[in-house]
Simulated assay, not measured.
Amino acid sequence: MRASAAGGLSLAALSGAIRRNPAYLHQYVTRGSPRLLAEGDRRVLAAMLGVSEAALGGPADGPVDGDASFALPRLDIEASAGPGAYNDGELVLGIDGVDGKLARALRLRPGKAGLITVRGDSMEPGLLDGDQLIVDLTDRAPAATARVYVIRIEGAIMVKRVGAGEGRLTAVSDNPAATVPVGEIEVVGRVVWRMGAPR
């Protein structure tokens, strides 16, 4: 599945997204087992990879719905708005859907966005503990005007306001009482939408 490599998702991660064992899609690709993907699995994978169901063995004349839900992988990381959540690597926990019109308005690309959960209070009042964030994984180049990004510092994942200037990135918390760890900033993606309880 060339589309999985292009989208930066491993076959094991995609298998997890459809709640199968990590070797499921590897066996499908290399051994032809199963011969056909289940309809539900095919639909989710097609949405994640931005390909037609026909490309995954589905019927060539399948329905097309321009307003269909846009599939977002729920990543097994929490963007700490506190000291930072340590993580060895992002894994796909499952798939959530957002409105297709919203996805188009945000210019999300299949396989290039994810959903994560905020933990902590360092980005209050803008982001609260438990908020769900849609992250555009293609936007990894902060500008001089700081915006909210998911970043990694020394292996810790966190959400901070990040800007670029004088040849380096700077990260700050919105909560003035919170600090940011010292270390090299690696940008994971830009926060483009917040979902949370009414305030």
Rank of each mutant, 00 (worst) to 15 (best):
M1K: 09
R2P: 06
R2C: 01
A5W: 02
A6M: 11
A6V: 09
G7W: 01
G7S: 11
G7Y: 01
A12W: 07
A13V: 08
L14T: 07
S15G: 13
R19C: 06
A23D: 14
Y24C: 06
H26E: 12
Y28I: 12
V29Q: 12
T30V: 11
G32M: 08
S33A: 13
L37Y: 00
E39Y: 02
D41P: 02
R43K: 10
L45T: 03
A47I: 00
L49D: 07
S52P: 05
E53L: 04
A54N: 06
A55C: 14
L56N: 05
L56D: 07
A60L: 05
S69N: 04
F70Q: 03
F70W: 04
L72N: 07
L75N: 02
D76C: 10
A79G: 03
A79E: 01
A79Q: 01
A79Y: 00
S80R: 00
S80Q: 02
A81N: 01
P83L: 11
A85C: 06
N87Q: 15
G89Q: 14
V92Y: 04
V92A: 07
D96N: 03
D99E: 09
D99N: 10
G100Y: 10
K101M: 13
L102D: 12
L106V: 04
R107Q: 10
L108Q: 02
R109S: 13
G114L: 03
L115C: 05
T117S: 11
V118C: 02
M123S: 04
P125G: 07
P125E: 08
L127R: 01
Q132L: 09
L133Y: 01
L133A: 03
I134E: 04
D139F: 01
D139C: 05
A141L: 12
A146G: 09
V148W: 00
Y149D: 13
R152A: 08
I153K: 05
A156W: 11
V159N: 02
V159S: 02
E166D: 15
G167E: 06
L169H: 06
V172P: 12
S173N: 06
P176R: 09
P181T: 03
P181Y: 01
G183C: 02
G183Y: 00
V188T: 03
G189N: 08
R190A: 10
R190T: 07
V191R: 09
V192F: 02
W193N: 15
W193K: 14
R194Q: 15
M195R: 15
M195Q: 15
M195H: 12
G196C: 14
